[in-house]
Amino acid sequence: MFQLYKKRGFSEFVGDTFDFLKIEGKSYFKNYFIINGIVLLLLVATLYFFTSIFFEGMFSNANRNNSDGMALFLNSNLGIFIGLGIFLFLIVMLASLINYTYPIAYLKLVAEKKTITTESIIAIMKEKAGRTIIFFLASLVVMIPLIFILMGIMFLLTIIIIGIPLLLIVGPALMSWMILCYYDYITTENGYFQSLGNGFNLLKMKFWPIIGSTVIMYIIVQMIVGIFSFVPYIITIAGFMASIDTESQSAEPYSAIMIAMNILMIVYTISSFTLQNLIFVNQGVIYYSVKDEEESHSIKSDIDLIGQNEE
Rank of each mutant, 00 (worst) to 15 (best):
I104S: 00
Y268S: 13
I303R: 03
E119R: 11
N31H: 04
E112Q: 15
M178G: 04
M1Y: 07
G171R: 03
I266G: 07
Y106T: 00
K300R: 12
A95I: 11
F228S: 06
L264P: 07
F135L: 03
Y106M: 02
K7V: 12
V221Y: 04
N190C: 07
S229K: 12
K126R: 13
F33Y: 13
S296M: 08
L90G: 04
V14R: 01
T118D: 06
M261Y: 05
I161Q: 07
I299T: 09
L21K: 01
Y218R: 09
R64C: 05
M258F: 08
F273A: 03
I303F: 08
M143K: 12
F55L: 15
I286R: 11
Y32N: 03
I121P: 00
I161Y: 10
R131V: 01
T117D: 08
Q3P: 11
M241S: 14
S248Y: 06
I104N: 00
I299L: 14
I147V: 13
S272C: 04
I161H: 04
M265W: 10
L78H: 03
D302A: 14
G152Y: 12
I227P: 05
I133P: 00
Y32M: 09
M93G: 07
E295C: 06
I259M: 15
K206R: 12
S301M: 08
S272N: 13
S271Q: 07
V44N: 10
I270N: 06
I144K: 09
G37V: 10
P209F: 02
N262D: 10
S272E: 08
F49Q: 11
V267F: 07
S60A: 13
P165C: 11
L140Q: 09
P103F: 03
I224E: 02
E311P: 02
G171I: 10
E189C: 08
V92M: 10
S255D: 14
E295I: 08
I38P: 00
N66G: 11
A251D: 13
V267I: 15
I122K: 04
V231P: 07
Y183A: 05
T269S: 09
I153F: 09
P172R: 01
E295F: 12
N99T: 09
T214P: 01
L150P: 02
A111T: 01
E189I: 08
V225G: 01
N31L: 02
M1D: 11
I98Y: 13
N75S: 14
L42Y: 11
Y32I: 02
N282V: 11
S27F: 02
I270C: 09
K6L: 08
L157G: 04
I219N: 06
K204A: 07
N99M: 06
A242S: 15
N75H: 08
I211W: 00
M93E: 10
K113A: 10
A129H: 07
K7G: 03
D19K: 14
G79I: 09
Y28R: 01
K6F: 04
F87W: 08
S76N: 15
N65M: 12
F87P: 00
I86R: 05
S271T: 05
I144T: 15
Y106Q: 04
I133V: 14
S11D: 04
A238W: 11
I279A: 13
R64S: 14
M205N: 12
S52T: 10
I23D: 14
V290C: 04
L84P: 01
D302E: 15
I279E: 02
N61A: 12
F200Y: 12
M125T: 07
G15A: 14
Y28M: 06
I210Q: 02
I38S: 13
F193P: 05
L202M: 15
N282E: 11
V110W: 00
